[in-house]
């Protein structure tokens, strides 16, 4: 792994709350909301509204809050935002929203608001809008037990792209309602990678991308 790339921020959203190296640390109980929050939660955490707060699905909302918790708004300078890459990995993708939209097919009115969010890259688009990021954007579907593909791809982009100095890489699982033997799972972990010296390191770079999101989330919770 390249020594010139650092972890500039980590943000986590899970069943307990939102935390990150960017200064946000809040429990859902303290915010008075159920896990995942509401359309207002982002504003309460970040001091400004997300442009699309009202229409975001749970997964996208988790991703934008986790991204904010990295401190991205403070860390990535305006002149680096046009090339900042965005990558997310997920096993279930948008399954929660898929099910919501599929259920609406039986109704007279199809849930048009849910349909776009059945694409697993939509949350990245909302992160891009929130922070004016215009780099390469990619969603990866991973197999069971995989953790770190998006991180590794982010490193490749920073090492070989030649233009990007920052990459937002994320692991997202968002199944609120158990189904067909699949347990509920709710976690959005966002890591902000940077090419040194564009940002300082907040946590050590792991030796391997395998398992990186889980280990960084644990590290953040212990801070």
């Amino acid at each position: 792994m390249s020594a010139s790339i650092v972890i500039a921020g980590v943000g986590c959203v899970d069943a307990t709350g939102v935390s990150g190296t960017g200064g946000i640390d809040a429990r859902w109980d303290d915010l008075g909301v159920t896990p995942g929050g509401t359309a207002r939660t982002y504003r309460e955490l970040c001091g400004r509204p997300h442009p699309n707060s009202r229409r975001l699905d749970l997964a996208s909302r988790a991703l934008v809050m986790a991204a904010a918790a990295t401190g991205i708004e403070r860390i990535v300078p305006p002149d680096a935002r046009a090339s900042t890459a965005l990558l997310v990995e997920s096993l279930r993708g948008s399954l929660e929203t898929d099910r919501r939209f599929a259920a609406s097919l039986a109704n007279e009115m199809v849930d048009s608001g849910a349909f776009p969010y059945t694409l697993s890259n939509m949350g990245l688009g909302e992160v891009a809008i929130a922070h004016d990021l215009r780099g390469v954007t990619m969603s990866l579907s991973i197999g069971p037990g995989v953790d770190g593909d998006a991180f590794a791809e982010g490193l490749r982009l920073l090492e070989h792209d030649g233009e990007a100095r920052f990459a937002v890489v994320a692991h997202l699982e968002c199944l609120e309602t158990p189904c067909a033997g699949i347990a509920a799972d709710f976690a959005a972990i966002v890591v902000l990678l940077a090419v040194a010296p564009a940002a300082r390191s907040v946590l050590p770079m792991p030796a391997s991308p395998a398992g990186v999101f889980a280990s960084l989330a644990s590290a953040v919770r212990e801070l």
Binding site: G93, D98, A102, C179, G181
Partner: peptide, 16 residues
């Protein structure tokens, strides 16, 4: 394939 009767977890956009 989850839409066509199989359990959702078996399908529903699982690329892997």
């Amino acid at each position: 394939s989850g839409l066509a009767g199989a359990p959702p977890g078996d399908g529903f956009g699982l690329h892997a």
